[in-house]
């Protein structure tokens, strides 16, 4: 039992890390555009990005199950591209997590860009800096706390993911059995001792990760955001 729990823990941390990194890569340019965009579609875009906040994870999971199916276009496309299936695979769970944690990564980044635009960007323009210099030497360094927050939130949120993985994971050890699923298994089979043990370990690891992340975040720049 303990070995499978360790596997689940490692898998969960891997999942959270990869999801957070991928989301950062995807969201930084998107947030930059969104922060600077003030057209009439803005409320719709913002609502779309915030959707995973309000949708039940099981609903997300259910629709992903449909999406991944080889009966449908996306599932077929993926099979053509990689020769594998998305459902019940780590890659599938990563894709699900990308949806699940998207708003948690986007929102700090958008807030960061907005703050920079309002406060510092204009001053830099007035001082006569070129757009390129501004982006590289001002905006990106000032964005570091937001990037830290976005990563921390995306990571922490994915650590706790359950409903979505339950729907599309298939509970396969080493591939899709993350800690929340392993915990659920223990509770369902009335193995409360194992459930307590695993919970405590997860709590400790999550807490330690967050402490580290926020410490790191603070040391980059002591900026009041």
């Amino acid at each position: 039992m303990l070995q499978s729990d360790l596997t689940a823990l490692w898998l969960t941390i891997k999942l959270a890390f990869i999801t957070a990194v991928l989301l950062l890569v995807f969201c930084i340019p998107l947030a930059y555009k969104l922060a600077g965009y003030n057209g009439k579609f803005k409320p719709f875009l913002e609502a779309l990005i915030a959707m995973p906040l309000v949708l039940p994870p099981t609903l997300l999971g259910f629709y992903l199950l449909v999406l991944f199916s080889p009966d449908h276009a996306f599932g077929q496309f993926w099979f053509w591209l990689t020769g594998t299936q998305l459902a019940f695979s780590f890659q599938g769970v990563v894709i699900g997590s990308l949806f699940y944690s998207l708003p948690f990564v986007m929102q700090p980044l958008v807030a960061g860009f907005k703050h920079i635009n309002q406060t510092y960007n204009e001053a830099a323009i007035a001082l006569g800096l070129s757009p390129f210099k501004r982006f590289v030497h001002l905006i990106i360094p000032l964005l570091k706390p937001s990037i830290g927050s976005a990563f921390a939130l995306g990571f922490a949120h994915t650590l706790g993911e359950f409903g979505l993985v339950l729907m599309i994971g298939g509970n396969i050890q080493g591939q899709t059995q993350v800690v929340s699923i392993a915990l659920y298994d223990h509770v369902e089979s009335l193995n409360y001792t194992a459930a307590h043990q695993l919970s405590l370990i997860l709590l400790a690891i999550s807490f330690a990760c967050l402490v580290l992340l926020f410490k790191f975040n603070k040391s980059i720049v002591g900026v009041k955001q």
Partner: peptide, 27 residues
Amino acid sequence: SDKRGITLQLQSCPLFPHLDVAGNLAF
């Protein structure tokens, strides 16, 4: 703005927080 040969110091002109004073001047 950056090609006009003019510098404007805004009223709210903030110092860049990720650099110390020397860094801001060097900026």
